[in-house]
Design a protein around this nucleic acid. Structure first.
Lengths: 226, 226
DNA sequence: ACCTGAACACCGTTCAAGT
DNA sequence: ACCTGAACACCGTTCAAGT
């Protein structure tokens, strides 16, 4: 058809859904979700925006695919072993994936389609809980609760620009200054944030584990109280 | 200045930040957050888009203001009474506010400014926990954990179009059909969702309270174990 | 089968101009 | 002080046309 001379332009790996999704995740990770537009993504791939529609149905489909790539990074828990340790590992690994891809948790709202990686992880969680001896009803409750906590914690962590305890302390200190004239209305914030957090900071990892272990302990108690 | 004859057009209440924010919340509630554009909001208020910029700095400022209106609907817990009952009431009231305004939880990601209603509720939570006898460190952990759970649960509830247990069962049933050929890979989903949820449904309210009480009980246990 | 140019119907925001 | 028209630099998506 076309002579070899006509396309001396830089060779491009052919587009595929996989390649589009991976490029989209990379772009959102690096520049934020609001910078992820069909046009910019296409440019990143050396192609025009309209070509993307050969591989994703629309922007919502793109986001569904991206989110399932994030789920693919989660370690699914094994069934039959130490269920608490397995679920703890999965929770930590989920949080890590959501931290690597900070845009992800904010995009889960309203998204009703669930990809295969999502289904696989949740199937494994259900299997782990059932093997541990939880009733079907308790299994549903236990999984919902853990997901709510994990996603909610990740959501909160995007609320603050600071990530290390020291950063957090600095931000808290600055906020005490910024809100100075209103502080009389918030005596407990002054005591707890001004008096403690602004000095000691806030350790996201430790706080996450505190709540996670409280939940797992509570579930274990309800399991043995049957 | 201008004669009375020159503006016989329909009298409009003058714009104000308050009026702009309330109209924005109403529009987002009714038509969804993606329908909330500066132009459509302006039209709703009988004005041009550019007039809004006299009352909000930009779209992000608009969203910050809207979210603080949602926080204003939350019952703050009282300090000194039955702390578990107070915090339970606050959690239920927060969830109710987030259900009335389904767009809200998805907009919390990355939002770093906190309005007065937000600060007021959180000050009250801290006060309640301190009065109950929690150390400053535990107070921080307890509040973070409750917020994470509440927001995360609300986020999950936007993932499903169905709200009543019966709706949920119908959706679960349909999904079993849709995913039929992949179901061999997910034996636990088949057992738990196919065998139970698709029949009994899923009661969001009951599930929320299950996790909430597990958390409050766990916190109480850690309080008395000091 | 896959890619593209042009076009459509939108966005948020700015700026100078009106009252 | 508050509102607006026109404009700028974008969006997602469709469609007919190219190879």
């Amino acid at each position: 058809m076309s002579s070899t001379a006509t396309h001396t332009k830089r060779r491009r790996a052919p587009l595929s859904r996989e390649r589009v999704l991976r490029a989209a995740v990379a772009l959102a990770d690096e520049r934020g979700i609001e910078e992820l537009t069909m046009r910019k993504l296409a440019k990143e791939l050396g192609v025009e925006a309209m070509s993307l529609y050969n591989h994703v149905a629309h922007r919502g489909d793109l986001l569904d695919g991206m989110i399932d790539l994030v789920f693919g990074e989660i370690d699914p828990p094994a069934a039959g072993g130490d269920w608490k340790a397995e679920l703890r590992k999965r929770a930590v690994s989920t949080r890590a994936a959501l931290l690597r891809h900070r845009w992800a948790v904010g995009q889960m709202e309203g998204r009703t389609s669930h990809g295969p990686a999502n289904l696989k992880v949740h199937d494994a969680i259900l299997g782990c809980l059932r093997a541990a001896g939880f009733s079907i009803e308790m299994t549903v409750s236990a999984m919902s609760m853990q997901d709510a906590y994990i996603y909610g914690f990740a959501l909160q962590q995007t609320d603050m620009s600071s990530q290390t305890p020291e950063d957090f302390a600095a931000v808290a200190q600055q906020q005490m200054v910024d809100y100075a004239e209103a502080l009389a209305d918030y005596p407990n914030l002054v005591e707890v944030v001004g008096g403690h957090v602004a000095k000691a900071g806030y350790d996201y990892e430790a706080e996450f584990l505190f709540g996670l272990d409280l939940i797992l302990d509570g579930l274990e108690r309800r399991l043995s109280a049957r």
